[in-house]
Amino acid sequence: MKQLKYILFSLIFCTAGYAFLHEEQPTQAFSTQIVERGAYGDDVIELQSRLQYIGFYTSQIDGKFGYNTYWALRNFQEQYGIPVDGLLGEETKNKLISVSEFNKEFVHEQIKKGNSFTTYGGQNVAKNKQAPSTNMQLPPKYSEKDLDLIANAVYGEARGEPYEGQVAVAAVILNRVEHPDFPNTISEVIFQPLAFTAVADGQIWLEPNERAKEAVLDALNGWDPTENAIYYFNPKTATSEWIWSRPQIKTIGQHIFCA
């Protein structure tokens, strides 16, 4: 009888322990930080998802706090009597959490898969693939396609160069787009016949690493270590005599940059 009691007690203890350990996790909530326009990341994904859940946000859930998210947040604040400032502060977070739900697993899985999806009214609808989106926020005049294309060119041309040298190659491409002697679009500058070795030998098709993308991001944001160069060459491998006639500006890594 005593043994039976022990067995019964153990069973109850185990069941309670199991239930405690497997207690449903609370709904994913925001971090403690104030989030505002220009931000990027998981807080913004949650904000967009929650706003979409209750019908305030209709654009793509991409984790980038742009104007669409900003206006949606302001509309939400206005409707719920919260001071309208477009900032995701504590009061706004609490109200948002109380009136919406966020299925973190579903949302992050769809983003990872690159699916087009909505969470309106709790109806998690995943559709076909959407246009791919980078995890980088660019100046308004550039697109993600620009970043991709230049990153491929930089990786193909200068992956062995120091970081400064990679930013420099990206800056030369951008300087050419603005220069009257060169084509006016990024793709035409890069694919201009005989302009870049990586295009001629197919290395432009190698997948760029994060370092090359970061270097391009800096160049798109205005950094130009070349001080306005429009040419560069490797003096050890250059076969053209003409390139030596160009006014030289500076040397970075293996490349001489010229005006």
Binding site: G38, A39, Q137
Partner: peptide
């Protein structure tokens, strides 16, 4: 004027 948060840094204009 504006700032953009990215993977490792903020870019400020």
């Amino acid at each position: 004027v504006e700032y953009r948060e990215n993977n490792i840094a903020w870019h400020l204009a």
